[in-house]
Simulated assay, not measured.
Amino acid sequence: MAKKVLIVTNSFDLHADLVVPLLTARDCAVFRINLDAFPRDYQICQLFTNNKMSSEIRHLPTGASIDLAEVGAVWTRKPADFAFASEDLSAQERAYAKMETEHALFGLLYTLDCYWMSHPVALRGAMWKGEQLQRAMTMGFRVPASIVTNSPERVRAFKESVQGDLVFKCLSSPMLGAEAVADEDRIATGLATTIVTDEMMESLDAVSEVACHFQEYIHKQYELRVTIIAGRIFAAKLHSQDDPRTAVDSRDMSAEILYEATELPDEVKERCLVFVQSYGLNYSALDLIVTPEGEYVFLENNPSGQFLYVEQLIPEFKMLDAVADRLSQEAACRI
């Protein structure tokens, strides 16, 4: 009997919503954990007796359950804050409940010897922007001149050394932490990659509060979103310079710029594959620039990056099918 696919995500994940029926159509059974409803809507049991372990997860609203020995593939998508049965937990009770839940859940999941897209350990190891830049350089990519520092003096010196403009980029999330606080506590909703102005340079002492990331601004012919799914490459060419709203940061989806499929040079294709595989990832999305001179420049790697919007703009990519194909194939071969 073929094994099942376990999806670990949240209840707002449209990617998972669309992949589940594709897996079902391939005769692949699926169990989904929505972390924003966990553990409130779930029961877990990890039992060690007679030198053996057994593990089960049950979804209380539906009664569906899975024996983790039945899992052949895991798709880890997006995190979320845990939800608990009691809504009136004190701050300390909630902190303790979160720590215990994390230990219980991942102490259970990490026992799985199966196919992962991708393993949480690999995801965490691949998320650090400074390390990404260093690794990309060692693999032959050009990277922008960059600095991460909480020293205003270092930033001023770096600005003097750069020919042209400087940009500020968030290291963790362009949401500026807005996703981690209640609505009433939000003072800003985000910050795109931004060219540093003279006025900003005059306020540079604020850098001493927290380490900040600055890069030289590299002029673009176009940008690339290179999504790698189980060794398959989907390279999207973004005509970001066609609209001033996306000239500096292509993530402004209010601008209807052209996305089209493109073919990477063999050496760039191989470099992207080796970069992603070096982390042990089975999925990742890389952002690159192609300069007016035709040089390929590495910007960053997104080990859990979104891909649905790219497929919607380039329907021939069929990335949802690529995910479903690999998960179902890996589950089927672990009988």
Rank of each mutant, 00 (worst) to 15 (best):
Val162Met: 01
Val121Asn: 10
Tyr222Ala: 01
Glu160Met: 08
Lys52Trp: 11
Asn282Tyr: 14
Val323Glu: 02
Val19Thr: 09
Leu191Cys: 15
Ile289Ala: 08
Ile66Tyr: 09
Gly305Trp: 03
Asp41Lys: 10
Val297Leu: 01
Thr262Phe: 05
Met53Phe: 15
Leu327Trp: 03
Ile218Val: 15
Met117Leu: 15
Ser284Thr: 11
Gln132Trp: 09
Glu100Pro: 06
Glu209Leu: 14
Ile257Leu: 07
Gly125Arg: 12
Ser11Arg: 05
Arg124Gly: 15
Leu123Asn: 12
Met319Pro: 01
Ser151His: 07
Gln329Ser: 12
Gln132Gly: 10
Gln306Ser: 10
Ile66Met: 09
Tyr42Ile: 14
Ser118Asp: 03
Pro152Cys: 10
Ala85Thr: 00
Glu184Leu: 12
Met117Gln: 06
Ile195Lys: 12
Val148Lys: 09
Ser208Trp: 02
Gly125Ala: 15
Phe214Trp: 00
Met137Lys: 13
Asp41Leu: 14
Leu264Lys: 01
Gln329His: 06
Pro303Asn: 11
Asp325Thr: 09
Asp249Gln: 02
Cys114Pro: 01
Ala230Ile: 04
Glu300Lys: 01
Ala2Ser: 11
Thr9Pro: 05
Val210Arg: 06
Val323Ala: 06
Pro152Arg: 10
Thr24Asp: 14
Leu299Ser: 01
Thr62Pro: 07
Ile7Ser: 01
Asp165Trp: 00
Asp287Arg: 06
Cys272Tyr: 01
Glu102His: 15
Glu70Met: 14
Val290Lys: 06
Ala69Ser: 14
Gly231Phe: 07
Thr138Lys: 13
Asp321Glu: 01
His59Tyr: 10
Ser208His: 04
Glu300Arg: 04
Ile218Gln: 00
Gln312Cys: 02
Tyr259Arg: 08
Val143Asp: 14
Glu202Trp: 02
Tyr259Gln: 11
Ala230Asp: 14
Ala16Phe: 03
Gln132Asp: 05
Met127Lys: 14
Ile187Gly: 07
Lys78Val: 07
Leu273Ala: 12
Ser173Asn: 08
Glu56Gly: 08
Leu35Ile: 15
Arg245Gln: 07
Ser328Asp: 00
Gln306Tyr: 10
His239Ala: 09
Leu166Glu: 07
Ile257Lys: 05
Ala180Ser: 14
Ile195Arg: 13
Tyr259Glu: 04
Ile33Val: 12
Val8Thr: 08
Glu270Cys: 09
Gly72Glu: 13
Val181Cys: 04
Leu109Val: 13
Leu109Thr: 13
Arg326Thr: 11
Thr189Arg: 07
